[in-house]
Design a protein around this nucleic acid. Structure first.
Lengths: 356, 356
DNA sequence: ATTGGCACTCAGAGGGTGAGAGTGCCAGTG
DNA sequence: CACTGGCACTCTCACCCTCTGAGTGCCAAT
């Protein structure tokens, strides 16, 4: 079944209108939009056919048409025009990106907030789970019963933990521990940290008080976090602004789904494209999102770590605008994150820290 | 104006009933509750007086009574009984607490989640802002153009930052930098980090490439975070479950208020009590919360850092239950956080890391 | 002081109605 | 033959009205 050029134009007009108003679109408003020089009767006939072909839907006999998921899909794939951002928008984004610290794990919640603010939809940001290993290990001696464990992972994130002990250790022991961890725990994956390995390490540095266990627990925890990924949601309350979520039960369903980060990490399973990915309504595996659409962009943070940033909204979403904004943010992020730290003048930093 | 014992009993019955049902309470249901052996007419008279005294309110002439903020206040201060937690509840809380890492800044979101789950209300958790100083500074050399900056603050939190440079530095320089920072930047507050100080430090270690600035920016950022405190919200979607937030506009108002952590940090300004603090409806300074109540508990994390955990809900809140749960969590936390790290057997840690 | 009774009030549910928006179809037209 | 104007038809939604029932306030009786 072919779809004529004219039908495409009508479909586009219907979707644009519906995205703007959230109300079923009648033949008359298409005529008024002026994209086609036809009478409403002709449009009606065409719309009837589009309905028969499954691109539009009719809430009830005497209402206008509403795009179906299939309609949105065609729109996203072919019809929508690539939107450009306004000066204000690009500037706002640039500014936010410039101010941020450059470490992915600390960045995610900020990026989520940024995306949510810019799009007016809830945003989810997460680091794609990777099987990370420890690249480097340090123990910093603070005082007799306190030290800091620092682990740098293969994905370029750094984690630390302050450890208070109920007994004293001397600085030599700390150094031995660090050395042992750097030889035995570096480069291995989480599941390779076995009780046997621990015992070995304990013997190697003469630890009888379970210090190795404490540090190993930290290592496992840290690697576990990397493996599971971590997700943030920002701006969930934007949902309540939208007419399709005025029903509190529906809003609650989606919001509690988003609140559980386990769910979110399942979102981008079919990682493939470099570009924007759009998941429309029923295409979502999760039934809680069957009336919602998700737009996802990926960004790179060095070789080993990928971040994902997504927007959740109703199927009637401003796909074009959201895609443009996400694309811009993701590109900017990749750029910022892969660039080395450029020392700047201090004055600038001072100002920045004040209005943050 | 005295309030008789009998009036108190009636008020308590009205509030308990209203908390449970969210609907105006009539004289008849008080009789049925069986707390007093009186006829509905007598109760009516008493309720009329309670209304005149301002403890109850009437939505309209022929509806039952609803507690006023003044009524809730009396209830919270005098009438409500201290609830005990069930075995299941205490166990659930204990388990969650036991599994957590012991660093306050990493703990907050977890604690928020816990509180929200246990109470079924949205929870906010934040570290009380303190004017922290850096207690200790370390730079870890990774490779020629990469190092890790680690700062331990006076409030016993540790922050790190991975720094990639667009040029090389040698290990000696890193050591000089660390030494300079440890002599010049330790023990001072954020606003004492001036351009003059930076220049001095630059001269002291012969830095011409802005390295000192980069590290100083990290210091400022870290101290700034401590000074501003940091807030997390968990379980905001619980609001939507409640009849008083079925109006999406109202829900939106409160949720977006909660989403902005700046607002939250203003909440506990009048820190004073050691115990639970209850803020009822219009007692809130923020007008967005004028129909909501906030229950706050404080916990200690070492000498210099205080954490706060709060629950936000409608004025019709299960004050007694929420207070009991928060109290329990806060006590447990204080306990866990002030205890030194007790090394445990590895098997336990292994299991723990799997089901987390 | 307490109670049973009664008249009164008022929000909210239920039901009927009309307006308006939109459709489908058909006959007419260039 | 594609397009259009017109018309009958459909259906939702907003509005209004009525009626019910819960709850009150007050009063006379105990």
């Amino acid at each position: 079944m072919e779809i004529s050029e004219r039908k495409k134009k009508i479909l586009t007009a219907v979707i644009d209108e519906y995205i703007a108003t959230a109300e079923p679109v009648g033949s008359k408003s298409i005529v008024e939009s002026g994209v086609l020089d036809l009478s409403s009767a002709t449009i009606r006939n065409e719309m009837a056919e589009l309905t028969a072909m499954g691109f539009l839907e009719q809430p009830h006999t005497s209402a206008g048409r509403v795009p179906s998921p299939k309609g949105y899909r065609l729109y996203v794939n072919e019809l929508m025009e690539r939107q450009r951002l306004s000066m204000e928008e690009t500037e706002a984004i640039n500014e936010s990106l410039g101010l941020k610290m450059k470490q992915l794990d600390k960045l995610m919640s900020d990026v989520g907030n940024l995306a949510s603010t810019v799009t007016n939809y809830p945003a989810v940001a997460f680091a794609a789970p990777v099987a990370a290993t420890i690249r480097r290990f340090d123990l910093i001696y603070v005082d007799a019963d306190t030290f800091i464990a620092v682990a740098m992972l293969s994905n370029d994130t750094v984690h630390n933990k302050l450890v208070h002990l109920p007994f004293s250790v001397d600085q030599g022991m700390i150094q031995r521990l660090a050395a042992v961890f750097n030889t035995n725990f570096v480069g291995i994956q989480e599941d390779k940290i076995t009780p046997a390995l621990i015992s070995n390490a304990e013997r190697a540095c003469g630890d009888t008080m379970g210090l190795v266990s404490v540090i190993a627990a930290f290592a496992i925890d840290t690697l576990g976090k990397a493996k599971e990924g971590q997700a943030y949601v920002a701006g969930a309350s934007h949902l309540l602004r939208l007419p399709e979520f005025r029903d509190p039960d529906k809003a609650h369903e989606v919001m509690s789904y988003l609140a559980d980060s386990e769910h979110l990490l399942g979102l981008p399973n079919d990682a493939s494209d470099d570009d924007i990915q759009v998941i429309i309504g029923p295409e979502n595996v999760a039934k809680e999102l069957k009336d919602s659409s998700v737009v996802i962009a990926r960004y790179n943070a060095g070789d080993n770590m990928k971040g994902i940033i997504g927007i959740v909204g109703p199927t009637r979403m401003d796909y074009s605008g959201v895609a443009a904004k996400l694309r811009y943010i993701a590109e900017g992020l990749s750029h910022v994150l892969t660039m080395p730290e450029a020392p700047k003048g201090f004055e600038k930093l001072q100002i920045k820290s004040k209005d943050s």
